[in-house]
Write a protein that binds this DNA or RNA. Sequence first.
DNA 1: ATATGTGTTGAC
DNA 2: TCAACACATATG
Length: 330
Amino acid sequence: MDGSCVEEASSDSLRYDIVDDGALRRMGSGLGVVFDPVPKGGGGGGGGGMEVESRKLPSSGYKGVVPQPNGRWGAQIYERHQRVWLGTFAEETEAARAYDAAAQRFRGRDAATNFRPLAESDEEEAAAELSFLDAHSKAEIVDMLRKHTYRDELEHCKRGGVLGKRKNPAGGYRKPSPSPREMLFEKAVTPSDVGKLNRLVIPKQHAVKHFPLSLPAGGGTGKCVLLHLEEDGDGKKWRFKYSYWNSSQSYVLTKGWSRFVKEKQLKAGDTVSFWRSIGPEKQLYIEWRSSAAERSRQSAPPAARLFGVNITEPPAVGCQLLKKQFIEVL
DNA sequence: ATATGTGTTGAC
DNA sequence: TCAACACATATG
């Protein structure tokens, strides 16, 4: 048990205090977690062969970790009312780490985790893992976790200095580290985002958090502003008019957006992500990656439903990999 | 037979 | 959203 120690508290309950590694940092008031009493084989317990199993499975103090009948631990995360299974693990802490990785990929760096808040940490290790997560689709991350190859892939990624596993279309590999950036949010574009409406709806949640509109004091209504985004570190510049539409009560990128859609040939289901350089500059970046496109050639599994359900980014099509970012075209 | 992951439910 | 629990289904 590397992440916890057990101490007998009383005959009918056990208090598990997970002490090291920052576990439980976010749980309750930092106290340990009191588990359900474990009525071993019913009071009398005894009549002879008390087997390893007590019907009551021990619950885990880790978020996203559930006990398995065989003593192992399962990891899961929920998204859109559905459970995404992350695999089973021998060690409770491994399951917890699997959850952490998934949480950060699914919910962003601010997600509540069992151990590492990755973000905040400016160590190269953390930064590398963050970009690793951002460079892969949810399905890929889940797949790695279930196959227990996450650690290896991450390592391989750092070693080779390749952000993704494959080389990009231009044949080159990613340049060392351009400038440290953090992803603000990403969105799988909808049909209307790439249609004739010539606008991209920015989910309110992200809009208010990252693109504060209004109140620019200095001048005006603040109902509209120009966003300057850069495509990749040394990519081209993009300017989008960003505003709020009262009629639909939505935040949108208008002028300039259609040009981006056209040039990138964005299709519904593709993903666009917005980043910001870390530090004072606050330069904004935009990136994108295709979802469907090569699925056929990729021979990949039936995509649509890799595991049970979930995975596929929101909109219909099962989004999938392809690190289109870091393109060198143009 | 055992392990793994889903169906379901109820609490928060 | 989340985990407990039952149980169906993969796996070796």
